[in-house]
Nucleic acid binder design. Structure first.
Lengths: 139, 139
DNA sequence: GACTAATGACTCGTATACAAGATATATGGA
DNA sequence: TCCATATATCTTGTATACGAGTCATTAGTC
C-alpha cells in the first residue's frame, strides 16, 4: 500500500465522517446528535427497553450508552425508570417532547438517504450490501 | 425509513467502527492508533510538512491535529520544528524511532486491506469507488 | 509604514468510543 | 442459607472529532 488513500480503514473512516457531518447538520436544528436520533428511533418503536437491549441493537458499549442517555435525559427527550422485578435494570421511555421530534427527524434522515442513494446510482445496492456485511463484522 | 438499520449515517458509521476496531488491534502492538499511523505514513513519505498541510491531506481540523501531534511527540515518534521563514508554522519530522515502525505498520494495514477485499470479492471495486466518492464529499 | 484581512497553531467545551474497573443485584448450585 | 458467577449500570481515563474562539504572525492594500 503506497498511499494512505488506499488504506481501507482510513477511507471508510473519512467517508463515514463526511456522512456523519451531514447527518449532524440536518439533526442539529432538532437539538439531537446522530446517535441520539438512533436511540430515540429504536425506543420510539418499542418503549421500555433497557440500556443493555439498546446497546445490543445499536452496537454501543455500556460506557458510551450511559453518557448518551444522560444527555438525552438532560434534554428532556427520554426518561429512566427502574425495573420493578430486576433492580439492576433501568428501562427507558421517550417523553412527549421526544415523540414530537420523531417525524421531523425521520424526514431529515430520509432526505440524507435519498441524497446519497441518488448520487451513488446503480452502485447503491452493492454499496449497501458491502456496508451491512462489514457492520456485522463478517468482512 | 422504518428501521435504523436502513439509515445510511448509522450503517456506514457502524461499518467504519468495526474496521477501525480491527485496525486499532493490529496497530496496538506498535503503540499507535489508526490516525497516528496515517500521519506517520504521510509524513514518512515527505518529511517537514506543516500541520495545516497534513490536515488538508488527511481531512482533519487543526484542533484534532494539535492533540494527535502532541501524543505522537510524547511517544517520541515525531518532532516539531519551527519554520525559519514563517514563524506561525511548525514543521513536523518523523524520528528515527518513528521510521522503524513504518514497515511493520504498513504490513499490518496491508493485511487488513487484504482481509476486507478478499471478503468483499467482486463487489470490492464498486465499494471502493463509492467510498472514495463519499469521502470526497461528492455524494 | 499603518491598517486590515488572512493564516497557523493552539485552547476550551462538548460528544462519541472504548478499556478497565467498581458497585449493586440476580442467579445457580452446594 | 451461603457462595461463586453472571449481569446491568455506572465511573474513570484516554483518544478522536468539531465548533468557537484566542494569539501571534504574515500578506495585501492603501
Amino acid at each position: 500500500m503506497e498511499r494512505i488513500e488506499d488504506c481501507i480503514s482510513f477511507v471508510i473512516g473519512k467517508a463515514a465522517q463526511q456522512i456523519a457531518r451531514r447527518a449532524r447538520e440536518k439533526l442539529a436544528v432538532h437539538g439531537v446528535t446522530p446517535i441520539q436520533y438512533a436511540i430515540l428511533k429504536v425506543l420510539g418503536q418499542q418503549d421500555g427497553q433497557s440500556g443493555a437491549e439498546l446497546g445490543a441493537r445499536l452496537v454501543m458499549d455500556s460506557a458510551t450508552m450511559t453518557g448518551v442517555i444522560d444527555r438525552l435525559q438532560a434534554s428532556g427527550l427520554l426518561e429512566r425508570q427502574a425495573d420493578a422485578d430486576d433492580r439492576r435494570i433501568q428501562r427507558l421511555f421517550v417523553t412527549e417532547q421526544g415523540r414530537l421530534l420523531q417525524k421531523p427527524m425521520d424526514a431529515a434522515m430520509d432526505q440524507l438517504n435519498d441524497e446519497v442513494t441518488r448520487n451513488l446510482g446503480e452502485q447503491g445496492e452493492v454499496f449497501w450490501h458491502a456496508l451491512r456485511r462489514l457492520g456485522e463484522n463478517r468482512g
